[in-house]
Design a protein around this nucleic acid. Structure first.
Length: 592
DNA sequence: GCCGTTTTCGGCCCGACTGTTTTCAGTCG
């Protein structure tokens, strides 16, 4: 049997947490399993491998007990405790527990007292009004449980039809779309005379891949007037009753917005609280309690003085706790608190550090603009150099570029490079070459050798097993004419999962051959993801951030690639296209 | 079940909301 992957171990630990929750274990034990699952899911190396060396306990949240359970999963195919608990509770019970408003305690009582062990059984019991007779339940609870059960069953039918239920869960919006709405909202509110400060908080501020909703924090000299104005904005579909403390909105795109208005001297506290993440805040508060400080959205209470300190600025919150300011992108409880206490936080890359872009398309393949137009757009976006990397000979969408066409394209690019026609922009003749299923590329080495820049990407046969896909990509990495692998995992956020791949083997090959890995900045991709980018850079792989622009406006997405790099803890040194082209050129694998 | 500037036991974030209850447990973010 193959060794369990990190995501398989994480799923097993999450399940064990769920089962212990049903079994009535104390909440801290359940939280411990959830924390361990997160640690495993985010670990950059094989946790099974670590456990075999007795080193899984080096991961925060994993102790000797869970390490043993990982080994049991690897050696026996199951965790004994999970097998025992699965036999104790019907499978449908977990589904009931996940209904909104119903936790493990009340779900278990429904099971024990009314034998409710499935959504269908819950529907029947609620319809027959048997639930309201239970102590602690009433007609209102019965009503809302019936509605929740109906909704869950309807959602299940929709998912079965393939209309919804994609990975990432229902109702999440890709950050690019959400930020477009959120930034418009913030600008409109800032323009209103009643407002003072207005800022996005929440996961949008942390620049996560996708968001569930938007959090907006404001101060105002007339709070009620601002809340009312928010409810009246064109992009708002419906609003709850505006109040002094804010208003809840729903936009026409279905995105929920929670707008809070706060006193100026608590703006920092509220921003800190609502920026999250939950994991960051929990860890921050636990560490603070040990110093006698209690952090909430209202202030920092000091046990020693009994006083609650309010902070107008977020920086003050962190300073009170003895921490350096932590950039929002780092607030995921991935080591940032320890680093902030030790004054060892990384200095993160920013959009203005990028000097060039190394992946874009023109009308020669599937782009909408000419070489010249793309060059000028890139210059206006602040770049010094741009690689033109149209698709290759077997793209498959009718935009194939034959070897002869590519030669002509190389001449065109070199003729334009550095001229006034492209505002002095340095243009690099490149290609985005397909990695075919057997690992070969769809241009001959002779022509690849003529190119200034070669991106190699997978665009077909996504369903290969992990071993074959890994061999396919490592074969491309081993070709010294390949400079960088484009959008390594092939994922489309909220639409298509990554294909199966052994990431550590990719990193190993990239280190061995000096091949770079791309963070594709398209907000739908952000591929490498932040965890892979962090692990790859730590192993010494050169990272480049590319826009994959298909039109002149396509360079605006650089911020999403930079955000992924920042969430990966990367500074300008780790990102090779922050360097001048002459330095980057010397770093190409063919020069090793 | 994890963990340690209260260190191998005894803790383990904070507050709001809901529905049910006369003071709170459960759930959620």
């Amino acid at each position: 049997m193959a060794e369990p992957t990190n995501s398989e171990i994480a799923a097993a630990l999450d399940e064990l947490g769920d089962l212990h929750e049903l079994d009535g274990a104390i909440v801290h034990r359940i939280v411990a399993y959830r924390n361990a699952a997160k640690a495993v899911r985010e670990a950059p190396v094989s946790v099974t491998g670590m456990a075999r060396q007795g080193r899984a306990t080096e991961l925060a949240g994993i102790g000797a007990t869970i390490q043993e359970k990982v080994l049991a999963l690897a050696d026996e195919g199951a965790i004994p405790a999970a097998v025992r608990l699965r036999a104790k509770f019907p499978a449908g019970l977990l589904e009931i527990t996940r209904l909104p408003g119903l936790g493990p305690k009340r779900a278990r009582r429904l099971y024990e007292e009314l034998s409710i062990d499935s959504l269908a059984a819950l529907q029947t019991a609620a319809a027959a009004q048997r639930i309201r007779a239970l102590k602690g339940f009433g007609p209102r609870a019965e009503e809302s449980l019936l509605a929740a059960a109906n909704a869950a069953i309807a959602a299940r039918c929709v998912a079965a039809d393939g209309q919804d239920g994609r990975d990432g869960g229902p109702g999440r919006m890709v950050l690019g779309r959400a930020l477009a709405i959120g930034e418009q909202l913030v600008a409109a509110l800032l323009a209103h005379p009643a407002s003072e400060r207005v800022q996005l908080a929440g996961s949008a501020r942390r620049m996560t891949d996708s968001v569930k909703d938007l959090d907006v924090i404001a101060t105002a000299h007339e709070p009620l007037a601002l809340a009312r104005a928010a409810a009246e904005l064109d992009l708002v579909e419906s609003a709850q009753t505006p109040g002094e403390a804010g208003v809840r909105l729903r936009t026409h795109t279905g995105l929920r917005v929670d707008m809070r208005i706060v006193a100026p001297d608590q703006f920092g506290n509220l921003m800190q609280h609502f920026t999250g993440s939950k994991e960051h805040n929990v860890a921050l508060r636990e560490a603070s309690v040990r110093k006698g400080l209690h952090v909430s959205e209202y202030g920092v209470k000091d046990d020693a003085t009994g006083e609650t300190y309010r902070c107008a600025r977020e920086e003050e919150v962190y300073a009170l706790l003895g921490l350096d300011y932590i950039e929002p992108e780092l607030r995921e409880n991935r080591g940032e608190l320890t680093a902030a206490a030790a004054h060892a936080l990384p200095s993160l890359v920013s959009t203005s550090d990028l000097r060039g872009d190394l992946h874009c398309h023109t009308t020669t393949s599937d782009g909408t603009a000419s070489i010249q137009e793309m060059a000028i757009a890139a210059r206006e976006a602040g770049y010094e150099y741009l690689a033109i990397t149209d698709h290759s000979a077997s793209f498959g969408f009718g935009d194939e570029v034959s070897s002869d066409e590519l030669r002509a394209q190389i001449d065109r690019i070199h003729a334009l490079s550095g001229t006034d026609a492209v505002a002095g922009m340095r243009l690099l003749a490149g290609s985005e070459v397909n990695i075919l299923p057997d690992g070969s590329l769809d241009y001959a080495d002779e022509i690849l050798a003529e190119l200034d820049w070669v991106v190699a990407s997978v665009h077909s046969s996504f369903q290969m097993p992990a071993e074959a896909m890994t061999a396919r990509i490592t074969a491309a990495i081993a070709n010294p004419l390949v400079d960088v692998i484009g959008h390594l995992s092939g994922r489309k956020i909220e639409r298509r999962p990554p294909y199966a791949l052994h990431f550590p083997a990719i990193v190993e090959a990239a280190v061995a051959h000096g091949t770079m890995l791309e963070i594709n900045a398209s907000p739908d991709r952000r591929d490498l993801n932040e965890l892979h980018a962090r692990a790859a850079a730590a192993a010494g792989v050169g990272i480049v951030i590319n826009c994959d622009a298909h039109r002149t406006g396509g360079f605006e997405v650089a911020r999403y690639g930079v955000a992924t790099a920042r969430r990966a803890w990367l500074g300008p040194d780790a990102i090779l296209n922050t360097r001048p082209w002459v330095q980057l050129r010397a770093r190409r694998p063919r020069h090793r």
